Simulated assay, not measured.
Amino acid sequence: MIHITKVIILFISLIISIPTMAQHGKVLFVMSEADTLLLKNGKKKRQTGIFLNEFYQAYKAIVDKGYSVDFATPTGKKATIDQESLADDYWKEDIQMKQEAIDFWSNNQEFSNPMTLDKAIEKEKEYIGLVIPGGQGLMVDLIYDKNTPLLLKSFAKNQKVIGLICHAPSFITTIQKEENPFIGYKVNSVTGFEEFYIEKFIMKGKPQKRKIAKQLHKLGLEYKKGGPGKSYAVRDRNLITSQNPYSGTQFNELYLKALEEVN
């Protein structure tokens, strides 16, 4: 009798938990798979990729809230990590998370076997949100990929939450003005001064794609910025954009709040 009672209690608890589990949706992470950046008009090569903390901090915040995640890259290759992003300075909010992120990048099977962007577009209806972490690698492949503007327009049209980190807001400029759903939005990205600092003192050379803030403003968006190297993020409707590798906490707060509202 006691055994039957325990089974009934377990069954009831599972039934009760179903609505709670069902309310958590799925978020798509789109990432670069590029590993080489050309500088100085192609005369210099530099290792590149996505910024690990910009990816992992957002990923962890989202899955810790009970959402599931899928990964996509242009051709289905594993995303490359920019080695610069392993410097301790970018992890000063939580230095212990750095090794956790490295282990995830090295060993997680889902991360290591992403779908293609073509497949991600086919599955768009499954997702309630999109996140594109930053890094110079994005400016090598995703900025030129025909699927990037298609994804942004589709997610915007269906009122889904879009998170663009650091360099990723540049993808808004890949959409023609007459069909761009973000015209007039408040938006943030890596600033002109931060681009200059990176080019002068870290990469020691200028890439082909740059001056993101200026391009966003010229297109017709209301560009907002924080101080160089400071935490800053902005939300306008379902679009959340952030400035640099130090903006993770602010980005996550705004993004999670937007997910809650649409879910």
Results as ranks from 00 to 15, higher is better:
Phe11Arg: 03
Ile16Trp: 09
Pro19Val: 10
Ala22Gln: 09
Gln23Pro: 06
Lys26Glu: 09
Val27Leu: 08
Met31Cys: 13
Asp35Thr: 15
Thr36Leu: 14
Lys44Thr: 14
Arg46Leu: 15
Leu52His: 01
Asn53Lys: 03
Tyr56Thr: 01
Tyr56Val: 01
Val63Lys: 00
Lys65His: 10
Val69Met: 05
Ala72Cys: 03
Ile81His: 01
Leu86Met: 12
Ala87Lys: 12
Asp89Thr: 11
Tyr90Thr: 02
Trp91Met: 05
Lys92Ala: 13
Asp94Phe: 02
Ala101Met: 00
Ile102Arg: 09
Thr116Met: 12
Lys119Ile: 15
Lys123Arg: 10
Lys125Arg: 13
Ile132Thr: 02
Gly137His: 08
Gly137Glu: 07
Ile143Asn: 03
Thr148Pro: 00
Pro149Arg: 07
Leu152Ser: 06
Lys153Arg: 15
Lys153Phe: 10
Ser154Ala: 15
Gln159Glu: 14
Gln159Asn: 14
Phe171Trp: 03
Thr173Phe: 01
Ile175Glu: 12
Gln176Tyr: 11
Glu178Ser: 12
Asn180Ala: 12
Lys186His: 14
Val187Leu: 06
Glu194His: 02
Tyr197Met: 13
Glu199Met: 07
Lys204Ala: 12
Lys209Gly: 05
Lys209Leu: 14
Lys211Ala: 15
Lys214Tyr: 09
Leu216Ala: 09
Lys218Ile: 07
Leu221Met: 15
Glu222Pro: 07
Gly226Arg: 04
Gly227Ala: 14
Gly227Thr: 06
Lys230Gly: 02
Leu239Asp: 05
Thr249Gly: 09
Asn252Cys: 10
Glu253Ile: 02
Leu254Gln: 03
Lys257Met: 08
Ala258Asp: 01
Ala258Pro: 00
